[in-house]
């Protein structure tokens, strides 16, 4: 028993030694450890700034920051979607970023009041089974999927953050009523629902469903593993929320006493090195002009985009969730 207790004490010491670094930058990351930790390590190596990261879902972290208010231990919030960033911005908890940072990316990928800046782009697409569906039969916007011919054929992930952000964008571009009708139409079409994007792509590859509404990069990761998969990406041909490019991005907490290092962190994420990493390792769109995306992807400028301000996304997020619930999808 004594040996057991001393073993446990040893473990406590060892793990607290791993966690305690007082001078470090604290980053709340909604982006997953497996994707961004290598990049953060490079940042620490190059700048000598130690970084302690808390990984969790973007929405959970946004909510945690709201609870923490002015006393957040975090210096930087690195999130997967503009809705989570907007939530923190709305609460007035970010500090304004210098224009030299926000101007690095096209204006539509950063907050209009410089509260946060996009670091990489993720397009909403249709994933379809290339062996069974002719892309010319696919509708020009997501509205076509409520037609009876698509009944039971289109997978959606109504509880997923990126789907909800897309619904919020649709409210901004098409209005509340049209979005409600569309969601009801998808429900009436008994569209199969999944927990996340990745099982939808897997289901398309497995021949379970023919089409699905997802983010663009999941398929590319599947294809990198096994190039024979049947799935293909389709970008809507008319400007619509269904083909919106939504940035993952970062902002600096107003309460941070470490603003300079925090800016260095964001600057690094917008460096050529980091942008190449996003293009090559995570199959996202780099936002720094001049850095090419994966060769399987159309150029970011060629994707038809609705005219909405992503800064407003968070203001209709609750409404989006309510509409999805009202349609009976959650």
């Amino acid at each position: 028993m004594k040996r057991l207790i001393s073993l446990i004490l040893l473990l406590v010491l060892a793990s607290s030694a791993c966690a305690a670094r007082d001078d470090s930058l604290v980053v709340y990351s909604g982006r997953s450890e497996d994707l961004v930790q290598p990049l953060i390590d490079r940042f620490s190596d190059e700048t000598g700034i130690a970084v302690t990261v808390r990984f969790a879902g973007s929405a959970d972290l946004a909510a945690t920051i709201l609870e923490e208010g002015d006393h957040s231990p975090a210096d930087v919030f690195f999130a997967q979607d503009p809705a989570s960033l907007g939530t923190v911005a709305l609460a007035g908890l970010f500090s304004e970023l210098p224009a030299t940072l926000t101007d690095l990316v096209p204006a539509r990928f950063s907050d209009s009041e410089r509260q946060w800046v996009g670091t990489s782009g993720r397009a909403r697409v249709v994933v379809y089974d290339g062996s069974r569906v002719d892309p010319s039969d696919l509708p020009s916007t997501e509205d076509g999927f409520t037609e009876p011919e698509w009944s039971g054929r289109t997978g959606i992930a109504p509880t997923n953050g990126s789907f909800l952000a897309f619904v919020a964008a649709k409210i901004l571009s098409d209005g509340e009523d049209a979005t409600r009708e569309w969601l009801k139409g998808m429900a009436a079409n008994s569209s199969p629902t999944y927990a996340k994007n990745s099982p939808i792509v897997a289901a398309v590859n497995a021949g379970e469903i023919e089409t699905g509404l997802v983010n663009h990069y999941y398929l590319l990761r599947f294809l990198a593993e096994s190039p024979d998969e049947a799935g293909r990406n389709f970008f809507f041909t008319s400007p619509t929320a269904g083909s919106l490019v939504m940035p993952a991005g970062a902002g600096i907490l107003r309460s941070s006493g470490n603003q300079e290092s925090a800016q260095a962190f964001i600057e690094f994420m917008l460096s050529t090195e980091a942008q190449m990493f996003f293009a090559e390792e995570t199959y996202e769109y780099p936002l720094l002009p001049g850095i090419p995306a994966d060769s399987l992807l159309p150029p970011i400028g060629s994707i038809p985009t609705p005219d909405i301000d992503l800064s407003d996304l968070a203001t209709v997020l609750d409404l989006a969730t309510d509409l999805v619930a009202e349609a009976g999808l959650i």
């Binding site: 909510a63 509880t159 968070a314 997020l317 609750d318 959650i330």
Partner: peptide, 14 residues
């Protein structure tokens, strides 16, 4: 639980 988690992740209002 599925609905509870969805409401947590999709809303500011808890």
């Amino acid at each position: 639980t599925r609905v509870i988690y969805a409401q947590y992740s999709g809303r500011l209002d808890r």
